[in-house]
């Protein structure tokens, strides 16, 4: 299963929102989904997320991720259905094990649980596909006062994922060209076949890190008084969306308690 969680630049209204707004959105959806316990409101919430995905022109990516999630959701629901003890027993597959009986509340709980998981994952996928990592990190540094070194660490890690995948591919090819067989035998044998891949990768990564550290130092990384070329300020729309999100959370809290 290859689910893309990369930023997809489509320039939609959703993309134009501030990173902070979208982060608050994902957290608000998370909170609301925790407060909702019935399948129907959760389903509505889920569909509204798909609506937002369409607005952001990332439906294709989100839907393919959702398809992958369905399997996980199904197993999650099944587990809950069988192990939820309360409610009226509808049927018991193994009579000697009363703990495994299926109840009406169990079914509802299981479906809700699965939907909740889908909602939470989808909302974060929406956040990731519509927000460049750089903007996220900058807003963390500027508004949430995360130290830049940590933010840089995070940004760099994200930035190097594709590079590492490319290295893995090349190393794999180089060893295959020397007649190395990666698909060898049992689990232990297979673990051994990984060495020719893993060791060059570690060496290359260390070299790269060292070179990068030097390149950064020569360009003055770590000097105090860092300024930013690009600063992004939340606009009026952002304020409105944030207020709406916070009221929605407040409403959900009030309805629940």
């Amino acid at each position: 299963m290859s689910v893309s969680i990369e930023y997809i630049p489509t320039g939609s209204p959703v993309h134009r929102l501030h990173a902070l707004t979208k982060l608050i959105f994902a957290l608000a959806v998370l909170t609301i989904s925790m407060l909702l316990s019935q399948p129907l409101p959760l389903l509505l919430l889920f569909f509204s997320l798909l609506g937002i995905a369409a607005l952001a022109s990332v439906s294709q990516e989100i839907l393919s991720a959702v398809k992958g999630l369905l399997k996980v959701a199904f197993f999650l629901a099944l587990l809950q259905v069988f192990f939820y003890p309360e409610g009226t027993v509808l049927f018991a597959p193994i009579p000697s094990l009363p703990g495994l009986s299926v109840t009406d509340q169990g079914i509802i709980f299981g479906i809700s649980m699965a939907l909740r998981m889908m909602v939470i994952v989808t909302s974060f996928l929406l956040f990731l596909t519509t927000t460049p990592a750089r903007s996220t990190v900058l807003s963390l540094v500027e508004y949430l006062k995360v130290p830049y070194d940590y933010a840089f660490l995070f940004i760099t890690a994200l930035r190097f994922i594709p590079t590492f995948l490319e290295e893995v591919r090349l190393i794999g090819q180089a060893q295959e060209a020397r007649a190395h067989d990666f698909s060898g035998g049992g689990p232990l044998a297979r673990l051994k076949t990984i060495f020719p891949l893993a060791l060059p990768l570690v060496m290359i990564s260390l070299q790269r890190a060292e070179r990068m550290a030097m390149a950064m130092e020569t360009r003055g990384f770590g000097l105090p008084g860092r300024t930013y070329y690009r600063t992004e300020k939340p606009g009026a729309v952002d304020i409105m969306v944030i207020v709406a999100l916070l009221s929605a959370v407040a409403a959900a809290v009030l309805l629940r308690f």
Partner: peptide, 22 residues
């Protein structure tokens, strides 16, 4: 044919030696 078998006939030296040395 798998690469490992083709490698009996065709050798390939990659540009970056560090992609193979371990």
């Amino acid at each position: 044919l798998p690469v490992a078998q083709l490698a009996r006939t065709v050798g390939y030296v990659f540009q970056n030696p560090d992609h193979q040395i371990f």
